[in-house]
Amino acid sequence: MSTASRNRSNAHYFDLDLQDEGFVVVLLPRPKPAAQKEASSSSSASGGVAIGPRALPKKTVEIRAKFGVPVVFEPSDENVTPQDLFQPSYSVVTMPQVHGFLHAEDSTSLLVYTDGVCLDNGGRRPRAGCAFVFRPSTQDPPTEGSVNFRLERTGPTDEIHPQTNKRAELRAVLGAIRYRNWRQGGFRTMIIATDSDYVVRGVTRWVFVWLRDNWMRHKQPVQNKDIWEAILHEIKRWRRQGLEIKFWRIRKEWNKAASALAREGAAKVAEERFINLSGMIA
């Protein structure tokens, strides 16, 4: 068995139990193959559950957080594209009708593409840009269906942060979620489509561990905590207003428009202060 395989088999997993006030995260030992159960019986008898070289206490660890639960969007067919499921159309539940990428069978579900890039990422002159696309742009009448911008030097807490690819990806998500009052368009579900594994795994899985460990990872502060917390706050706020936000990890080739716009954003004039972007439903 490879080292990577051993690490996966010895890892813990998280069982989510949804609660009215938020969620509960329960840390459980990963189930062992039958062949390992007998070998670990002595460890279990002593009050622990053997997981590879470690033993965990039987008592589970619970974490309660006061915000809505981020959810992964999983289509029934993993090969179906966002363009197949969410086509440019108009909502039928509001007047005037709202134009966007709406689910083929549910016009109350909206998809928004997001991406962030950093030129010279990790180098001496990093320049990061962010973008999100919420509808097709049109010529007649002329309408913009996307937003792109340079990643600011400061975050929502006014602290200075380095320009990185991961931070730009997160900032694009926060910009999209805050951009409009999506509930006024009659939407009940908003799907954030991104090719960033960091974003999707972070907001739906890793954040629970960070909360348990007081935003520490390997004895170091979690990077981009300010944006993570802002995104979680927005998820909770929108959930209370009747909008559920889900995250869909899509292939890079399905996210070309947002990626190209993010690169354009990286070439814009540097922004010092964090900007609250806003637009109107139309």
Score class of each variant (00 low, 15 high):
Val71Ser: 10
Thr81Cys: 05
Pro53Ala: 10
His103Arg: 07
Ala258Val: 10
Ala65Leu: 06
Asp120Met: 09
Ile245Val: 13
Ile250Glu: 03
Arg205Lys: 12
Met1His: 04
Ile235Phe: 13
Ala34Glu: 14
Pro82Ser: 03
Gln220Pro: 06
Val49Asp: 09
Leu232Phe: 14
Leu28Ser: 06
His161Trp: 00
Ser5Asp: 11
Pro96Phe: 02
Gln241Ala: 05
Leu102Asp: 08
Leu111Trp: 12
Gly175Thr: 01
Thr189Gly: 06
Trp238Pro: 05
Arg150Cys: 15
Leu151Lys: 03
Leu119Ile: 15
Val147Ile: 08
Asn181Ala: 03
Arg180Ser: 10
Pro221Met: 13
Phe134Leu: 12
Phe134Gln: 00
Glu229His: 11
Val147Tyr: 02
Met1Lys: 00
His161Val: 00
Trp248Ile: 02
Glu271Phe: 06
Asp226Gly: 03
Val72Ala: 02
Ala4Met: 13
Asp195Trp: 03
Gln83Phe: 13
Lys66Thr: 09
Ala260Glu: 15
Ala260Gly: 11
Gly186Lys: 03
Val133Thr: 04
Val133Cys: 09
Leu174Asp: 06
Trp215Gly: 04
Ala128Cys: 06
Trp248Met: 01
Asn79Tyr: 09
Ala193Pro: 02
Ile227Phe: 11
Arg217Phe: 13
Glu78Leu: 10
Met190Trp: 07
Phe14Lys: 04
Leu16Gly: 01
Glu234Phe: 10
Asp115Ala: 02
His218Ile: 02
Pro29Tyr: 11
Ser40Lys: 05
Gln83Met: 13
Pro126Arg: 03
Arg249Ala: 09
Leu174Pro: 05
Asn181Gln: 05
Met190Leu: 15
Lys59Arg: 12
Arg54Asn: 08
Ile177Ala: 00
Ala257Cys: 04
Val71Ile: 06
Ser89Ile: 04
Leu119Val: 13
Ser42His: 13
Asp197Trp: 09
Arg54Leu: 14
Gly68Lys: 00
Ile177Gln: 07
His161Met: 02
Leu243Gln: 01
Leu27Asp: 14
Trp228Ile: 09
Gly48Lys: 14
Arg124Pro: 03
Thr164Gly: 10
Ala65Pro: 00
Pro136Asp: 12
Leu261Gln: 15
Arg188Pro: 00
Ala262Arg: 04
Gly52Ser: 07
Arg171Gly: 00
Val69Asn: 06
Ala131Cys: 08
Phe208Trp: 15
Ala260Gln: 13
Leu170Pro: 03
Arg249Asn: 12
Lys37Ile: 14
Val26Phe: 11
Val72Cys: 01
Thr94Asp: 01
Val71Pro: 01
Ala193Cys: 04
Val173Cys: 08
Tyr113Met: 01
Arg135Thr: 01
Glu244Ala: 07
Gln36Phe: 05
Ala50Ser: 15
Gln223Trp: 09
Phe73Asn: 05
Pro82Glu: 04
Ser44Gly: 06
Val269His: 14
Ser76His: 04
Gly265His: 07
Met216Ile: 01
Ser46Phe: 02
Pro141Asp: 11
Asp20Val: 04
Thr114Gly: 05
His12Ile: 10
Trp210Phe: 08
Ala260His: 15
Asn148Pro: 00
Gly48Val: 04
Thr189Tyr: 07
Glu159Ser: 13
Tyr113Ser: 02
Arg217Lys: 14
Arg6Pro: 05
Ala267Phe: 09
Ser89Met: 06
His12Phe: 14
Asn224Trp: 11
Pro70Phe: 05
Lys66Arg: 14
Tyr90Trp: 14
Ile160Leu: 08
